[in-house]
Computed example of a mutant assay.
Amino acid sequence: MPLDATGLSLVMGAAVGLVLALTGAGGGILAVPLLVFGLHLQMAQAAPIGLLAVGLAAALGALLGLRDGSVRYRAALLIGLTGMLVAPLGVRLAQRLPNAPVMATFAALLGWVAWRGLRQGSRAAREAKRPAARAPVCAMNPATGRLSWRAPCTALLALTGSLSGLLSGLLGVGGGFVIVPMLAGISNVPPRGVVATSMAVIALVSVGGVLGAATQGTLAWPVALPFAAGAVLALLAGRRLSARLAGPRLQQAFGAIAAAVALLLLLRAVGAAT
């Protein structure tokens, strides 16, 4: 028997939560395409639903990360609060721009994420064996777990928050695909800490986008609630799998999926524009 809209929303949300648990970065960027193709929503309708689901799932992941001490909470607060301030701007832009160019922008962004996932997946094992060439901009003291708060570090973290906030409001993505590589590139925070910190930021940034959509009356709650429930439940289950499945092959698989979805979105955007 085919699933109704509620059941389909639950299943699609579960797929988003599982990806978020495994990567800390990919759930949000797959949520909107699933809603666009699975439930035939417009980008402006799908974006806040995806943001709500990813935000709730990320909040749960962040709380679990805080419990085990893997969240760098000062960095998460700076990135997240900056993103919260910028996210409503992205929501306003999403409501004013036509659907086709927004979808094409999302497809281009997803294509970049796919390329990065495939490229980094093939290089991860080799680069992991290389010694660090220089101290990172945001160096973490392994003994205390605290970052060195110098001006370049603070500026880069604030820039990361601004970009993730804008994309969150405009496209309904959590911003983890920006936060994870940025934080990993400028710091020596362990991968588990990067993922947990990313989830904390996504939870904060999502607040601005969801509130902006809710106050403007563009959040479809009958779809959003089961979608979010599926994401939260799958994230709990996915955390048990993350230690065994994480690695270069997972990055490559996510990159391949993202590339296929990007192509489908681009074709749909071209069809909508003609």
Results as ranks from 00 to 15, higher is better:
L89Y: 15
P101S: 02
C138K: 09
V91F: 00
P142E: 05
A100C: 07
L85K: 00
M140H: 00
M84W: 06
A133E: 14
Q95G: 08
F106I: 01
V91M: 04
A114T: 09
A104V: 08
L118W: 11
A139C: 14
V113P: 03
A133H: 07
R130M: 15
R119P: 05
G111R: 07
C138W: 11
S122D: 05
P136M: 10
R116Q: 13
L93P: 00
V113C: 05
F106L: 15
A135E: 15
A107Q: 07
L93R: 01
V113M: 08
P88A: 09
E127I: 14
T105F: 15
A139F: 03
Q120G: 13
R130A: 13
W115T: 07
W112R: 04
R130W: 10
A135Y: 00
M84I: 05
V86H: 00
N99C: 01
G117L: 08
P136W: 06
G111E: 06
L110E: 12
L89T: 12
W115Q: 09
A139P: 14
V86S: 00
V137K: 02
A94F: 04
T105V: 13
A100H: 07
A139I: 14
R119E: 11
G121L: 10
A100W: 12
G121A: 06
L89H: 14
E127Q: 11
A94Q: 13
L118S: 06
V113H: 09
P136Q: 02
G111A: 09
R119M: 12
A104H: 12
P101A: 07
R134W: 08
N99Q: 14
L89A: 14
V91L: 09
A133Y: 12
V102D: 05
V86I: 08
R130Y: 12
V113F: 09
A135I: 07
K129C: 07
M84Y: 04
A135D: 15
L97V: 10
W112M: 12
N141K: 05
M84N: 06
A132V: 06
A108F: 11
